[in-house]
């Protein structure tokens, strides 16, 4: 360990990130799957039917009890739910929704709203960068030349491909093809892991070159301060992005696992769409981060 290496607690903190991210990803996946599965899907028994066919009365009564207890998927009782009565699909409908269409639309718009919050989250960081770049253009330009362009480029291609592959997978499950979705998810996870591996290597390389801001910073001279600002932005931006990647990998891995168990249907694949949105969004963030860090100031004027 050379004396130029930054304090080990930084590396310890960075090592925490994958664990935290994976844990969060699986937690989110588990939370969204609890309560969905039902062993015996309740049948839609209307009041008139129950009156006419006494043997259906017990079935209706137990459906009512399940509804009263607020069990998700116990819908179908109040007849306000048009659309599919296929029990395989109905058991995925939560009791506050009219039908699968209603639930899927709501879930997707909810995810888009969440992505809007993420846009504003990263936007704050970009505000910081923009202001500093305006004030200290030379220092920031010089600092950005120390980034590894080939790693950034390869990573961009990896992410673009992974986004395309997962989008393909979503298209496949619309036709009910769990197997192709499984393989698309596996490839996506692989590409994501490759991205992260390259990223970790890049960080290690940056740390070796003393590019972490602080005492012993590699770039000295009049631009040292603003270069450190750039590299702070670099580590914060790529660090936050990596955390989102890790969570995303967890989510896509969960989709892969569920697809393996043939869990999704042509009539119900909302979790896949929602995860796809998240994953593509992580890609979008990188598409803005990449030129900012690696490209825009690389060639001096």
């Amino acid at each position: 360990m050379s004396s130029a290496r930054p304090a080990t607690r930084r590396s310890r903190f960075l090592a925490l990130l994958p664990g935290l991210g994976l844990f969060t990803g699986f937690l989110v996946a588990w939370l969204s799957s609890t309560g969905r599965e039902r062993e015996t899907p309740p049948m839609h028994v209307g009041r008139t039917e129950a009156r006419r066919h006494p043997q259906l009365r017990t079935q209706r009564r137990s459906a009512v009890l399940r509804l009263r207890r607020g069990e998700p998927g116990s819908g179908g009782y109040y007849g306000a739910w048009a659309g599919s009565t296929d029990p395989q699909i109905v058991r995925h409908i939560e009791f506050q929704y009219e039908g699968m269409q209603h639930q899927a639309e709501t879930a997707l718009s909810g995810m888009w709203l969440f992505l809007t919050t993420e846009v504003v989250f990263f936007g704050g960081l970009f505000l910081l960068y923009m202001v500093y770049r305006l004030r200290h253009l030379d220092g920031i330009a010089e600092a950005s030349r120390h980034t590894e362009l080939w790693i950034g480029t390869v990573n961009t291609v990896l992410l673009l491909t992974s986004s395309a592959v997962f989008s393909y997978g979503v298209g496949r499950i619309k036709e009910g093809d769990n197997r192709r979705l499984f393989w698309a998810s596996v490839v996506t996870v692989g590409l994501g892991l490759a991205f992260l591996l390259l990223k970790f290597y890049e960080w290690w390389d940056d740390l070796q070159k003393n590019l972490f801001p602080g005492p012993g910073f590699a770039i000295t001279g009049s631009h040292s301060g603003s270069a450190q600002l750039f590299w702070s932005f670099y580590f914060i931006g790529t660090g936050l992005h990596a955390i989102h990647m890790i969570i995303g990998i967890g989510l896509v891995a969960w989709v892969a696992w569920s697809a393996r168990r043939q869990r999704y249907l042509a009539g119900w694949f909302t979790p896949v769409e929602v995860v796809g949105l998240y994953w593509s969004f992580v890609d979008m963030v990188w598409l803005v981060l990449f030129p900012t860090i690696y490209l825009v100031d690389r060639v001096g004027s």
Partner: peptide, 17 residues
């Protein structure tokens, strides 16, 4: 970030605001 890594993001000495 500033506190954990002792790095100035808003530090005027580095040009921060």
């Amino acid at each position: 970030f500033e506190r954990i890594f002792r790095v100035g993001v808003f530090d005027p000495a580095l040009g921060g605001d």
